[in-house]
C-alpha cells in the first residue's frame, strides 16, 4: 500500500496536509496509537522541510503490516553537511522563516527521534 502527496515550496498554508492524510490512512489501517503519533511527526517535519527549503517535492507513505516507510523527495539546494544538519538547533532557514516560528533546527533531529531508521541522501548543485 502506497500513498503519494505532492508538496510545494513556500506553501505554508497547506503544510500539514500530507501528515493529516497519512494519519487518517493509518487510523483506518488500525496501526498502534504510538506508531501513528510518531509517523505524524516524521511526515510533518519532512513536509515542512520541503516547504521551507525546496522548490517542490513529494511525500510517499508505504504501509506494511509490521512497519511504515515515509519517503521524502525534493528538488532544492541540497544539504552540504548532513552530520551538521542532524544537530539539534542547527538551521539554515533564513530569518524571515524563523520569525514565523519555523526553522528552529529541530526538523531532522525530531524525525530521527521518531523513527527507527533514517537514511538521508543529498546532492549539491544539481
Amino acid at each position: 500500500m502506497e500513498m503519494n502527496f505532492n508538496v510545494k515550496g513556500m506553501d505554508f498554508n497547506r503544510a500539514g496536509e500530507a501528515a493529516a492524510k497519512f494519519k487518517k490512512a493509518l487510523q483506518l489501517v488500525g496501526m498502534e496509537v504510538a506508531t501513528i503519533r510518531k509517523a505524524v511527526i516524521v511526515a510533518y517535519e519532512a513536509e515542512l522541510n520541503i516547504v521551507i527549503h525546496a522548490r517542490q517535492g513529494s511525500l510517499t507513505l508505504k504501509v506494511y503490516s509490521d512497519r511504515l516507510e515515509i519517503l521524502a523527495q525534493d528538488e532544492g539546494p541540497g544539504i552540504p553537511d548532513i552530520a551538521l544538519a542532524m544537530q539539534e538547533g542547527y538551521s539554515t532557514a533564513p530569518p524571515h522563516i524563523r520569525e514565523m516560528g519555523f526553522g528552529a533546527g529541530m526538523g531532522l533531529p525530531n524525525i530521527s527521534k521518531c523513527s527507527n531508521n533514517l537514511e538521508i541522501e543529498s546532492e549539491i548543485d544539481v
Binding site: M1, Q27, L28, V29, G30, V33, V63, Y64
Partner: peptide, 23 residues
Amino acid sequence: LPLPTLKLSHDINRAIAMLEQVE
C-alpha cells in the same frame, strides 16, 4: 482510553488491502 472506531478491519493485512481499495 482510546475508542478505536475508525479501523477498517481487525486483521491488519486485510485493513491495508481495504485502504488500498478506499484510495
